[in-house]
Simulated scan of single mutants.
Amino acid sequence: MRSPKLFLLGAIPALITTVLFIASLVALLLNIDTLVAWMSPFAEGWDETWRAALRVALGVAVVAASVMLMVVAFSTITLAIGSPFYDLIAQDVERRLGDAPPEAEEPLPAMVWRVVRQALGMIAVSLLVTIVLFFCGFIPLVGQTVVPVVAALIGGWLIAIELVGSAFDRRGLMRIKQRRAHLGRHRLRTLGFAVPAYLLLAIPLLSIVVFPAATAGATVLARQVLGEPDGRPRKAEPLP
Rank of each mutant, 00 (worst) to 15 (best):
D92I: 11
W113C: 09
Q91A: 14
G98Q: 07
S126Y: 02
I139H: 08
R171G: 08
M174F: 11
I139G: 10
E106F: 11
A152W: 00
R187A: 13
E103W: 09
L108E: 13
P109Y: 09
G184H: 04
L188N: 09
S166R: 13
Q178F: 03
G184V: 02
V132P: 04
L153K: 03
A167I: 05
H186E: 11
G156T: 01
R185P: 01
R185I: 01
L163K: 01
V142T: 07
F168D: 01
R96K: 15
R175T: 12
V129M: 07
A119H: 07
T145A: 11
V93W: 03
D92A: 14
S126E: 06
A124G: 10
L120T: 09
A110T: 13
G98H: 09
M174G: 15
P109K: 09
P148E: 07
L173R: 13
I176M: 12
M122K: 05
V115R: 14
D99N: 14
I89Y: 04
Q91D: 14
F135C: 05
A110H: 10
E106G: 07
R180I: 02
I139N: 10
T145I: 15
A167Y: 03
A167C: 05
P102C: 05
S126A: 15
V125D: 05
V149M: 12
A160V: 00
A124H: 06
H182A: 15
L173S: 07
A151H: 00
G155M: 01
R114V: 10
G155A: 03
A167G: 05
F134V: 02
L97V: 12
A90H: 09
V147E: 00
E105G: 08
V142W: 05
V125Q: 06
V132K: 06
I139A: 12
G143D: 06
Q178D: 10
R179M: 03
R185G: 03
A110I: 14
P148D: 04
V149D: 05
R170Q: 09
V112Y: 12
V149N: 04
F168M: 03
E103R: 15
R95L: 14
M111E: 13
V93N: 03
A100E: 08
Q178G: 08
F138S: 11
I176D: 10
P109F: 10
R189K: 12
G137P: 03
I161Q: 05
G98R: 09
V116N: 06
L97N: 07
T130R: 00
M111K: 13
G172P: 05
T190R: 00
Q118T: 14
G165A: 12
P101M: 06
L153Y: 02
A124L: 12
A181F: 08
L163C: 02
R114P: 09
G137H: 03
P148A: 06
V129G: 02
G184M: 04
P148V: 10
L133K: 00
A119W: 05
V112Q: 11
Q178M: 09
I139D: 10
T190H: 01
G156N: 03
